[in-house]
Nucleic acid binder design. Sequence first.
DNA 1: ATGACTCCCAGTGGGAGA
Length: 255
Amino acid sequence: MKLATWNVNSLAVRLPQLLAWLAENPVDALVLQETKLTDDKFPAAEIEAAGYQVVFHGQKTYNGVALLSRTPASDALRNIPGFDDDQARVIAGTVRGVRVVGGYFPNGQAPGSDKFVYKMRWLTALRMWLATELAQHPQLVLMGDFNIAPDDRDVYDPIGWMDQIHCTKEERAHFQALQGLGLVDAFRLFEQPLKSWSWWEYRNLAFRKNQGLRIDHILVSEALRSQVQTCVIDKLPRKNERPSDHAPVVVDIAA
DNA sequence: ATGACTCCCAGTGGGAGA
């Protein structure tokens, strides 16, 4: 089965691109981030017409997540249980026996800021919850916009970005702690091109110059690791007119 | 260069993203 994640940076703007991408890439499930739509405005009918079931959790202006799947997702969940959060950042559901967790991790803005403190709290709550979730669902995939570049090779200018947001020791420690739960970075299971990014700044001709970060990830549980066939970043949508600043990441799991 | 772009809500500008 193929699973994917894509930060669309406004589903209202990107819906035509999403439908076009799904037509070209009929994945079994896709998680979206930054839909930026309250649930009453979510384009469920258009997505269902494209052959997908959808569960979503949104808010005005910021954040917002969705889980699209060919077959209905069961046991859907919105946000982290027990973590009081007014921001819509997590959606989960079970698709064909695989627990799919989609996350829009907090940006954090700048180390030391209130938003950075929130990011740390959120990451801790996510990990605590995932530990229990993994116990119940050994076959689990965590994917989304992590807003963390796990390693210097995931950064176009590691010196310039040293200790900056997405690249701090604290954020990278959280990424490693998720791996400590038995979650594996599917992208790094394979040899990949150098300078592989999932996000490029809108400014500075960054995409043309291939100056970006790899901050969108797919982590698979130990039980699924040996079944991962491929994991790729699809740069094509970034070449569209009015693109999202993020590219989709796709994993193929034999199941 | 504390910029550059895009989106949103707003309302003739400003916050946030990353």
